[in-house]
Amino acid sequence: MSTTQMLKGIIDGCLLAIIKDTEVYGYEMAEKLGSYGFHSFSEGTIYPLLLRMQKEELVTSTLKKSTAGPRRKYYSLTPKGELELNKFIERWNNLQSNVNKVLDCESDTEYTKGDEIIE
C-alpha cells in the first residue's frame, strides 16, 4: 500500500486541526502540511477535501483582500467541525495505539532488526 492510500482520511483530520486555531487559505494549508513532512501528496488534493468539508458544514469560508493579488478564500472551523476534529483525534489515538501494539507484539523480532534493514 502506498503512502497516498494510507493518507486518505487522515489528511481531512490534519486539515481540520490546521484550520482550528487560525483562519488559513489553501496555499498556506498545503505549505503547512508540507512543513510537517507530508511531501508525497499533490497539494491540490486539499481542494476536493475542502469542498466536501464545506458541504458537510465542517468549515466555512470568507473571501479576504490580499496585497499580492485577487481575494483569497480563508477557511475557519464551524462548531460541527470542532466536534469532528475531536472525534478524529480520538479515532487517531485509538488507531495509533492499536497499530503500535500490533507491531510491537507481532513483528517483535523483525521490528527491532528493522532499524538496521530499513534505514
Binding site: 487559505y25 489553501g26 496555499y27 498545503a30 499533490s42 497539494e43 491540490g44 488534493t45 481542494y47 469542498l51 493579488g69 485577487p70 483569497r72 478564500k73
Partner: peptide, 26 residues
C-alpha cells in the same frame, strides 16, 4: 469560478516558489 480562482492563486504561489504544476494537481 470559486474553485478556479482558488486554484489560480494556489498555482501562481506555487510557481513563484518554483514548484512544478504536477506538485499541485498531480
Amino acid at each position: 469560478e470559486g474553485i478556479v480562482n482558488e486554484l489560480e492563486i494556489h498555482l501562481s504561489e506555487a510557481e513563484k516558489n518554483g514548484k512544478p504544476i504536477e506538485k499541485v494537481i498531480g
